[in-house]
Every structure is written in C-alpha cells, then in structure tokens.
Design a protein around this nucleic acid. Structure first.
Lengths: 130, 130
DNA sequence: TTTGCTGCAAATTCTTTGCACTGGG
DNA sequence: CCCAGTGCAAAGAATTTGCAGCAAA
C-alpha cells in the first residue's frame, strides 16, 4: 500500500509544474528549500516509484538521466546549442509504423529523437546576423 | 598522434564482427581470452577514442551504455521480450523532417526508437501457438 | 499499532584518472 | 629516444540499499 508523503507530493508537483525534463539533482536542489533535511535517497526512491506507477517517465539525454512529466511515449528535440530538451508536438507513429511495414517484428510504440537548433537559439542567431 | 595498439585493434574488430550493440563489459569479457591482462580502463579508453574518431557510436539502451558498430545516426528497434537491439533497415529522415516542418527550430538529424517484439521472438511465439 | 517513508551513511555500479612501465614509430 | 597506450589501483559520479526513527492509515 502506498502512503501519502509530503516529499513525494512535492516531487510530483515540481516535475509537473516545471513541465520539462529535470535531473534528479535539479529536483533535489529545488526541493531542498522546502525540505532542508531532504536526502537524495528520498528523491530517487520517489522518482522511481512514480516511474513504476506510470506517472512520469525516465528518459536519457546524452548519457544523463532525466525525468519527464509526460509518461506517454513521445518525441523529443535536443538542442545542441543550449542543451534544451523539448517535447515535439506530434508523434505521427502511424506514419512510422506504415513506413516500416516490411519489418517482420511487432512494432508497439515509436518515438523519435530530433537533433539540431531549438526555436529560441535559432531566433537568437537570426537576430544577431541582422 | 594515434599509435597502433593490438588491444584497440581487437576492440574495433570485435565490435565490427559482432555487428550488434555490446556493452563495455561484454567486450571486455570477450577480449579477456586474447588479452589475459586486459583492463577495463583500456577498453573504456579505446571505446571512447573510437567514438571520438567517429568509428563507432555510443548509444543508450534502457539506462545502460552500449556501443554501436555503425557510427551514422540510424534507428533502433528494442525488443521487450529478449532485450535485443536491432538496427532498423531504413531511417526515412526526409519523411520525418517533412512531418515536422511546422517546427520553428532547425532539425539537423533524426533517429527513431521502435519498441515491441523482434522478428525472432514474434516467430517463436507464433510457432508455440500452432 | 502497523507498515510505509525518511534521512543518513555505507554500499554498488559504471566509468574515469594517476602513475609507472611497456612498446610502437 | 619519445610519447601514446597499457595495466593496476584508486578516485569519481550517479544511484541504490540497510537501518533506526518517524509518520500515515
């Protein structure tokens, strides 16, 4: 049976409020203010529990582990300039599934990773060149 | 200047011969036969060097680091039954790029991750149900 | 009261680094 | 001869685990 805990609730809320892909360390640092005695163990235990419950997802960004507020499989964009990880608006998996219909295995899900320059950095570069 | 070394050559050959996505530990274990004094440090150093030289690639499979004999960005299929990581024959990035033309950033590369049952496991399951 | 959760510290796992020595160029 | 590469051991970084005390239910 899973009991309520203020720490877990704070972690859940923090990830959800941020709406991005923080590392365990980032979350720990941010919550340390509200819970001075917070330990990494608690953060990790709760993050793993939330992942198991399917409330959040664990993703991997260039070797580092990050947590995603959206547990459903979806695509990400990785900016090579600022390092940002952005959710991609659409994940046309139907199209991808069709594209790989020659594959004899069973494709259940598909996510894509896009690499390049994010909208912000692109705009920044454009502004400078003016 | 990069010098020849039998260890590095063996590592390079091993990855290439396997044609799959081994971990550093797997490679170490396999090469330990030919090089009884081989150390993990040598394996890691050489793997990292080969990655830097663009001869192989580092990929991440469920939190674990693996090495890919094919350094060019391409898609992978992850079997949830046997854990196999299979290269996907085609990576129609042009299609994906087109699909995301509404995105205001600059997409330079794209790889997809497919999840499901690999051809072998699928065939196995089918055979059993007969 | 029972059992999960927390904090702390120690333990793990994976990978890198320092150093003296070997070996390729 | 010179410096990259090696092996070994120690150092690091990230994450997990053991345990005693605390707090939900």
């Amino acid at each position: 049976m899973i009991k309520y805990s203020r720490q877990r609730e704070a972690i859940r809320k923090q990830i959800s409020n941020r709406g991005d892909h923080p590392t365990a360390e980032t979350l720990y640092a941010e919550l340390k203010g509200d819970f001075p005695n917070l330990s990494f163990a608690t953060v990790y235990r709760n993050l793993n529990q939330l992942v198991e419950q399917g409330e959040i997802a664990k993703i991997n960004v260039g070797g580092a582990t990050r947590f995603d507020y959206d547990p459903l499989p979806h695509s990400h964009f990785f900016c090579r300039k600022c390092g940002a990880v952005i959710d991609m608006p659409e994940n046309d998996s139907a199209m991808l599934l069709a594209a790989h219909e020659g594959f004899s295995g069973i494709i259940e899900a598909c996510t894509s990773n896009f690499y390049g320059i994010c909208p912000e950095c692109a705009a920044e570069a454009k502004k400078r060149s003016n």
